[in-house]
């Protein structure tokens, strides 16, 4: 796994350098990898400070989005009125791009972290809710019959059967959430902030410090990849009974 990562990164850097040589692009359009590496070292403290802000926003957004999403999915499943009245609203709300409401959030929640956490929360809320609700709804009818015959209560059936049965589906939702949560946070920072990687990139771009902008971008990408594989690992460990489909044989 680690070796594969190293190979992928090496190949990407070589391709990058090749593009720089072939196109003869000036450094303020596409800085060569070496310059970006230097910028990363030179501005390390500054980048790490802004990165830590963005990471906190993303992680808190993930936690909030998953918690609210899980509660919503349970409420939609459990209460008919919530299903009938709230579900259409939920779907309709997805027609509204998060980008479009970013300024409104800024207005309401201010310039600081709150609005960015809200953005990340909003952008992952729907995939998490939809995935968990689907998982909870599509429990094998054989299991449900067995639970009814055995005299299960709603609570115990949820605990021992519906919820664990929904975990693989929830896992897919979480993977998507991990991949898109950084979008929410960074868009929030672009719209208005004085900290975070999104802010740093805009700021560097305005001062034509393109190498610094690329360095910030690299750190963001690295964190996003780390987050995705971290969550993927946790999901696989939790859903241990799901053997991976053997892709080679199909």
């Amino acid at each position: 796994m680690l070796r594969r990562f190293a190979v992928i990164i090496a190949v990407l850097i070589i391709l990058w350098q090749l593009v720089v040589w072939l196109t003869q692009a000036p450094a303020f359009i596409l800085p060569p990898p070496y310059d970006v590496g230097q910028a990363l070292v030179r501005h390390f403290d500054e980048i790490m400070f802004h990165a830590s802000v963005t990471m906190v926003e993303i992680v808190l957004g993930l936690l909030l989005g998953c918690t609210i999403g899980a509660l919503s999915a349970w409420a939609i499943l459990r209460f008919r009125h919530v299903r009938n009245w709230f579900l259409p609203v939920l779907v309709a709300s997805q027609a509204l791009p998060v980008f479009a409401i970013a300024p409104v959030l800024m207005l309401w929640l201010g310039f600081g972290m709150g609005s960015k956490i809200a953005m990340a929360t909003l952008i992952i809320y729907f995939p998490v809710t939809a995935a968990l609700y689907d998982g909870l709804r599509n429990t094998d009818s054989g299991w449900i019959n067995l639970a009814r015959i055995m005299g299960a209560s709603n609570h115990t059936a949820l605990k021992y059967i519906r919820l664990p049965a929904a975990l693989p589906s929830l896992g897919s939702g979480l993977r998507i959430a991990a991949a898109i949560a950084p979008i929410g946070a960074v868009v929030g920072e672009w719209v208005g902030s004085s900290t975070g990687l999104g802010y740093l990139m805009l700021h560097a771009n305005a001062r034509t410090q393109v190498d610094l902008m690329f360095a910030a971008l690299l750190v963001l990408a690295a964190f996003a990849v780390f987050l995705y594989f971290g969550i993927d690992y946790l999901v696989k460990r939790t859903v241990f009974w799901q053997s991976e489909t053997n892709l080679e044989t199909t």
Partner: peptide
């Protein structure tokens, strides 16, 4: 409440150990 059911599919819960699967009835009734 006075019947036991066995189907063509084993209906074992993959996240429970074998002993918990056997005791599923009492687990579900708490």
């Amino acid at each position: 409440g006075r019947i036991a059911w066995m189907a063509q599919q084993d209906l074992l819960l993959p996240w429970l150990k074998i002993i918990d699967n056997i005791n599923l009835g009492s687990l579900l009734r708490g």
